[in-house]
């Protein structure tokens, strides 16, 4: 298995600010609202085949999946201080911040 965790729990990560849906047929599991945002890895969830490839019945690479925590008001510029968003994100979408 190639997908051993490369991002440590507690590390700060940035979600790639990428919009593949503007470039053709895709299947993306990274919600739009976290793209380009910075959060904290709170959990490594294990290795899973890349859904972006599974969705087209292509051989899928194995990716580490992380639970990443974001401050909710920073994303929407509204909301309650201290509220948070916890999102499952594949390693291919994350870079160290």
């Amino acid at each position: 298995m190639s997908g051993s965790p490369q991002l440590a729990v507690g590390s700060r990560v940035r979600v790639r600010d990428d919009w593949p849906e503007t470039r053709g047929r895709v299947h993306i599991r990274t919600p739009h609202y976290v793209r380009g945002r910075t959060g904290t890895v709170v959990r490594c969830l294990g290795d899973f085949p890349d859904p972006e490839q599974l969705a087209f019945a292509r051989p899928a690479r194995i990716l580490p999946l992380y639970h990443v925590l974001f401050e909710q008001p920073q994303i929407w510029l509204e909301g309650c201080a201290g509220d948070q968003l916890l999102v499952e994100i594949y390693g291919s979408w994350l870079e160290p911040s």
Partner: peptide, 15 residues
């Protein structure tokens, strides 16, 4: 003003 992201129509968070 917040610009609406080029999200796909099923990607409904905050829509």
């Amino acid at each position: 003003m917040e610009l609406e992201a080029p999200r796909a129509h099923h990607d409904l968070g905050g829509a």
